[in-house]
Write a protein that binds this DNA or RNA. Structure first.
Lengths: 164, 164
DNA sequence: TTTAATTCAGAATGTTCATTCTGTTTTAGT
DNA sequence: ACTAAAACAGAATGAACATTCTGAATTAAA
């Protein structure tokens, strides 16, 4: 809270008055974050011209994040899932909502890719979308333990290759 | 530390005398844990008769862990990777050592499965082993956020199916 | 058995941090 | 401009917790 007061310039009074407590503030921040990252990364998968390359790019951005500075390794989703979700039903609900949306977006993107002949016709896009969601988080864990960019890229490519 | 003193029955004096501090105690616990889980789960992949089913079983055990009680969701590896690895080079080294070993074990198991004709002959087992390592952690993240056993099993099956 | 070294349980210390409180300043309505 | 409400900065409170300290109990050596 100290940090938030300093960085935002909003007083403790204001924060507690508006959000009640740290927990509530966090929940709203999480929703905001998810909404933003959905718009920034996943919306493009819903365009009719979405291709496998769109998916590749989403992963590439994440891998790039992991591999650079010490900061910003991982995302709020995975930290929340690991540290809070099992004991907090409400947060779990927020995470599930957005992760399901993520899987869905992947599935829609894959369907478009299928129409373009980039993936095999019998691919089950729903299952594949869930797999990609899981892969995203697996990558973050490996990235945090310092695995090289090459390894992370390799995992993404193997996964995408399996759709062909 | 309070909890450890209570649960082990060892006095603070003894713990600090033997391990120095919480950090050192933790590092040794992590190695112990990794060693044990390696022996319990991954050693069988090195047997010459290892099959795809051995891999499936390892994942099934993990999925079962995730889906039952509130306790024990996740493992020490992933928690350490998420919470400590980026700021602690030594722990990162420990994690990397064991995660690489894990990938290697998967690769060896896949090679045996290939000999049995269970996976396609041109599968790159090294890359596939790394992918399975990543998948393992991805599953834990989804499990923690409450995804159903069916979804988790589906991800495992899609992944294994992609090797055929 | 006596002495010296270990080990014990639990109290004391010091730090971090969320939350509340207080007295002052700013804003909005008249 | 004057009053009442809102918002401020920062101090006070209280809890959690790692680590160190203390005096008592236990063990091992003579």
């Amino acid at each position: 809270m100290e940090d938030i007061v300093r960085e935002t310039g909003v007083s403790r009074y204001g924060i507690y008055g508006t959000f009640g407590n740290k927990r509530e503030l966090f929940e709203q921040a999480l929703e905001e974050y998810a909404e933003g990252m959905g718009k920034r990364s996943f919306l493009r998968l819903l365009e009719p011209d979405a291709s496998l390359d769109h998916i590749r790019t989403i992963f590439a951005e994440r891998v790039a994040d992991m591999s650079c500075c010490d900061e910003s390794k991982g995302c709020l989703f995975i930290h929340t899932a690991m540290e809070l979700a099992p004991q907090d039903e409400e947060l779990r609900g927020v995470l599930q909502k957005f992760m399901k949306r993520m899987g869905k977006a992947f599935a829609v993107g894959l369907e478009s890719a299928k129409a373009r002949g980039e993936v095999r016709p019998d691919l089950e896009v729903k299952a594949a979308g869930e797999l990609l969601t899981s892969t995203m988080f697996g990558l973050v864990v490996l990235g945090r333990t310092g695995f090289s960019r090459d390894v992370l890229d390799g995992i993404v490519e193997s996964t995408l290759a399996s759709f062909r």
